[in-house]
Simulated scan of single mutants.
Amino acid sequence: MPAKSNAQQQAAGIALSVKEGEAPRSSLKGASKSMFESMSEAELKKMASTSRKGKPSHVGD
């Protein structure tokens, strides 16, 4: 599933770096924490690698 905003992509990147052991678990907050708990590494890679071109900063509910 591709990211819908830059913020979502960034949160996925943080969660992915923790899953891969490159960042401490204490760096997880908010959306990245829930992504870490609910998504697989493959799903996070797909979301984090989405192109940023044309994406809004945030997407409202």
Results as ranks from 00 to 15, higher is better:
36 F>G: 12
30 G>S: 11
35 M>G: 00
19 K>P: 01
35 M>Y: 08
28 L>I: 07
35 M>E: 03
50 T>Y: 06
13 G>S: 10
27 S>D: 09
15 A>N: 03
10 Q>R: 15
36 F>K: 12
5 S>T: 10
52 R>E: 15
40 S>R: 10
34 S>I: 13
56 P>V: 09
38 S>C: 01
24 P>N: 14
43 E>T: 13
13 G>R: 15
4 K>N: 11
32 S>T: 02
39 M>L: 12
38 S>I: 02
29 K>N: 05
3 A>E: 14
56 P>E: 07
32 S>K: 05
22 E>M: 12
3 A>D: 04
53 K>F: 08
42 A>V: 09
14 I>R: 14
26 S>F: 01
29 K>Y: 10
24 P>E: 07
46 K>G: 06
23 A>I: 02
18 V>S: 06
49 S>Y: 01
47 M>F: 04
53 K>C: 01
12 A>I: 04
5 S>Q: 09
21 G>Q: 07
45 K>P: 02
48 A>N: 08
54 G>C: 12
11 A>I: 05
59 V>E: 10
48 A>C: 14
28 L>H: 01
46 K>R: 07
59 V>Q: 13
41 E>S: 08
53 K>R: 15
34 S>A: 08
45 K>W: 05
45 K>M: 06
11 A>D: 12
61 D>L: 14
24 P>Q: 10
60 G>V: 07
46 K>L: 11
29 K>H: 14
41 E>L: 03
52 R>G: 15
7 A>F: 13
33 K>T: 04
58 H>I: 04
54 G>P: 09
7 A>D: 08
13 G>D: 05
38 S>W: 02
33 K>A: 11
31 A>G: 00
22 E>W: 11
28 L>C: 02
53 K>M: 07
21 G>P: 06
56 P>I: 08
57 S>M: 03
23 A>E: 08
59 V>M: 15
9 Q>A: 14
51 S>Q: 09
3 A>L: 04
56 P>C: 11
5 S>R: 09
25 R>E: 10
26 S>N: 05
57 S>Y: 04
31 A>K: 12
60 G>F: 15
17 S>A: 11
16 L>P: 14
57 S>N: 12
55 K>D: 01
22 E>R: 09
29 K>M: 02
57 S>C: 01
56 P>G: 13
14 I>K: 12
18 V>W: 05
1 M>R: 08
16 L>M: 04
47 M>N: 04
49 S>T: 11
49 S>I: 03
13 G>F: 04
46 K>P: 00
1 M>Q: 06
2 P>K: 14
58 H>N: 06
30 G>I: 12
51 S>C: 03
18 V>I: 15
44 L>Q: 03
30 G>H: 13
19 K>F: 02
36 F>E: 03
26 S>K: 09
28 L>N: 08
24 P>R: 13
36 F>P: 02
15 A>M: 13
47 M>W: 11
40 S>G: 08
6 N>Q: 10
15 A>D: 07
60 G>P: 00
39 M>T: 00
16 L>S: 07
19 K>L: 03
43 E>I: 10
29 K>F: 13
17 S>N: 12
24 P>K: 14
37 E>G: 05
58 H>T: 15
29 K>E: 10
39 M>P: 00
43 E>A: 15
15 A>S: 07
40 S>P: 05
5 S>N: 05
36 F>N: 06
16 L>I: 06
18 V>Q: 08
44 L>R: 09
58 H>A: 01
39 M>F: 14
11 A>T: 08
38 S>Y: 05
47 M>Y: 05
48 A>R: 02
